[in-house]
Simulated assay, not measured.
Amino acid sequence: MIRTMLVDDDRLVRLALADILDDAPGITVAAQASDGAEAVERARAQHVDVVLMDVRMPRVDGIEATRRLLALPRPPKVVVLTTFDLDQYVYDALAAGAVGFLLKDSDPAEIVRAVEVVADGQAMLHPSAARRLIEHCHATTRRRTSAARSRLDRLTPRESEVLVLLAEGASNAEIAAALGMRESTVKAHVSRILAALEVGNRVQAALYARDAGLTG
């Protein structure tokens, strides 16, 4: 059972999300919070696997809450769920360690799929947000291009191929199909890529790939 927590200062939004997730097999809403500070308190009190996190909230916003949650001994996976397509706040949340984000008007099935995907250790980015993220990275991370390319030099050619597809938002199964590999082999490659790039998750690896110009 995937234990989720909903973090949003709008009670009606939390109720709507709870209805969506409680109807999904294998998922339960274990906790709710109205801001980031409350979210961290609840995560300390009980284990949750996935957090759906709003960005703009009183007291502690979603960005700072993400940092605090990921510092816990058993950190949950954080997905930013926002009304904003992509802005500096969302980029900062991803850089802080969130494993993806969706728009609040996403189809309920996409929200359920996001919870399942990130609980399995993968990333979930809304397509339009992924495009905006690339644009944002190109505009703000030129100074990191050289360092990113240096780290990418640590990868084998096969690992680079996996990273390109990963950065484009492909799942392990999709990468395996595209490259004619077993999914277990893809998982092993992804683990080595994360270790070589010294990052903690797939989103941060994708940022390095885009900083280095590996994807366009």
Rank of each mutant, 00 (worst) to 15 (best):
M1H: 13
I2C: 06
R3C: 03
L6Y: 00
D8G: 04
R11K: 13
L12K: 09
V13D: 10
R14E: 07
R14A: 08
I20K: 01
I20E: 01
L21C: 03
D23A: 15
D23R: 14
A24C: 00
G26N: 10
S34T: 14
G36D: 08
R42C: 06
Q46W: 10
D54N: 05
V55F: 04
R56W: 13
A65W: 03
T66W: 06
A71I: 05
P73D: 04
V80W: 07
L81C: 10
D85E: 12
L86P: 06
Q88D: 15
Y89P: 10
Y89E: 13
L94F: 06
G97T: 06
L102C: 05
D105P: 00
S106H: 07
E110L: 13
I111Y: 00
V112A: 06
V112K: 02
V117P: 00
A119M: 05
H126R: 13
H126T: 07
P127R: 01
A129Y: 01
R132P: 00
E135T: 12
H136E: 11
H136D: 12
R144M: 11
T145F: 06
R149H: 00
S150F: 11
L152N: 01
L152H: 03
L152Q: 01
R154G: 12
E159C: 01
V162F: 03
A167P: 02
A170E: 12
I175M: 09
R182W: 04
S184R: 12
A188S: 13
H189W: 05
V190M: 06
S191D: 14
A196Q: 07
A196G: 08
V199T: 08
G200E: 14
L207D: 08
A212H: 01
L214H: 02
G216R: 15
